[in-house]
Simulated scan of single mutants.
Amino acid sequence: MKIAIFTDTYYPDINGVAKTLKRLTNYFEEKSIAYKIFAPSSYSNEYHSPNIHLLKSRSFFLYPECRLAFPNLFDIKSELQTFSPDIIHVATPFNVGLCGVYFAKKLNIPLVGSYHTNFNHYLHYYDLNFLSKIHWKYMHWFHRSCRKLFVPSTETFRLLKQNGFSNIEVWPRGVDCQLYHPHYDKNSVQKLHSTPEKYLLTYVGRLAPEKDIKTLLAVAKSIPAELKEKLHWLIVGDGPLRKELQAQSESNMTFTGYLVGKHLAKVYSASDLLVFPSPTETFGNVVLESLASGTPVIGANSGGVKDIINSGVTGILCKPGQVREFRDAIVQLLTNDELRDQMGIAGREYALKQGWDQIFEDLNWQYKRVIEEQNGQKYA
């Protein structure tokens, strides 16, 4: 089986889609499954592979972290015909994804898609609610040729079902529990980031409106003074709101920029809590990474996050945007070491059951079913 994936983001980009697809292609390599990635050239050209066809691109002016590709259709067609894939997977609904849809039809190749981002929910944070109907019409049009549409959580499944989508399958996310674990040295993280306070609270993610970072800032300011002086915040990530947030931030906040690999894993492990107010997640990779690290999560009771956190067991779910609920949850857990430790243990136990291999094997089986249905072929 040969698989072509069309995506507007891929490694070394730092986001949930890019990380998931990189993990998927690692699995393909381990299983000797042939694949070809079609993706925009990145701001970093350090990563090269014969399995990746890079497309010319520029930073999108409204969101510099995103790349806008300028595909050469002749080159893509030639590459596809040489590779001769059994199936095309479109992972994003923009320029590169459109190429995948086009060539799947033109070359009669089975097509599947995946829905990673709740763009409709994003509209609220950019004062673009009037575009909601247009958004859903476009999503229906874009995915109408997909024999399967993979979504990362049951909450996203329900959302798309309510909006008239069919052929939906849940394709959840796993976590690397060998990288993310509770046993790193907390003192080394405190020294590196100059955080000598008793408690370490962390946020991990883009610094953008759709993550509801303003609620995070309001929560930090609302912590009672006697507790505030005992804690430090690490804000891990970057994005269009960083300068504004830093200008308004508390003195006990450190902005680290993006962290990856062991450095990020050590921060999770050293943290007492992950505070994640984003209500727009279709999954919430950082939430699962934190639980794998033995760190409870206080998150928004919305989207894919509510599928991961067992409120009262592995963390606490709060009503989106409710500063008081988030503040009270933080105070409750920081003043109850035993409960916080119990939640950390429960979170680690949950994460240990969320392995990638079975998830990818199930996806592989779905690929084979789609190919068989269209072509009448049988794959062992």
Results as ranks from 00 to 15, higher is better:
Ser302Val: 08
Ser166Trp: 00
Phe157Thr: 08
Glu349Gln: 14
Lys214Phe: 15
Val286Ile: 12
Val101Ala: 10
Glu226Val: 13
Ile37Ala: 07
Lys378Pro: 01
Arg173Ile: 07
Ala34Thr: 09
Tyr367Ile: 04
Thr117His: 05
Gly237Ser: 03
Leu98Pro: 00
Tyr47Val: 12
Phe326Pro: 04
Gly164Tyr: 08
Pro279Met: 02
Gln342Gly: 12
Glu210Lys: 04
Phe74Asp: 15
Leu111Ala: 03
Tyr138His: 08
Gln322Lys: 14
Glu226Lys: 12
Thr92Asp: 01
Asp272Ile: 02
Asn51Ile: 07
Pro279Asp: 08
Leu62Ala: 15
Thr7Arg: 02
Glu79Ser: 14
Ile223Cys: 09
Ser114Ala: 07
Val236Ser: 01
Leu21Arg: 01
His124Arg: 14
Leu245His: 08
His183Tyr: 11
Asn285Met: 02
Trp136Tyr: 10
Gly164Val: 10
Gly261Asn: 04
Lys191Leu: 11
His193Asn: 00
Ser145Phe: 13
Gly315Ala: 03
His232Phe: 10
Glu250His: 09
Ala39Asn: 01
Val219Arg: 09
Pro64Leu: 05
Val323Glu: 10
Ile359Leu: 04
Val151Ser: 05
Gln248Asp: 13
Glu338His: 12
Ala265Tyr: 00
Cys66Thr: 14
Val305Arg: 03
Lys221Val: 13
Asn375Glu: 10
Val260Leu: 13
Tyr43Trp: 15
Ile3Arg: 04
Lys378Tyr: 14
Val151Ile: 07
Leu201Asn: 07
Arg348Ser: 07
Leu288Val: 02
Lys230Arg: 14
Leu62Glu: 14
Pro85Arg: 03
Asp185His: 10
Ala4Gly: 03
Lys133Tyr: 15
His121Thr: 13
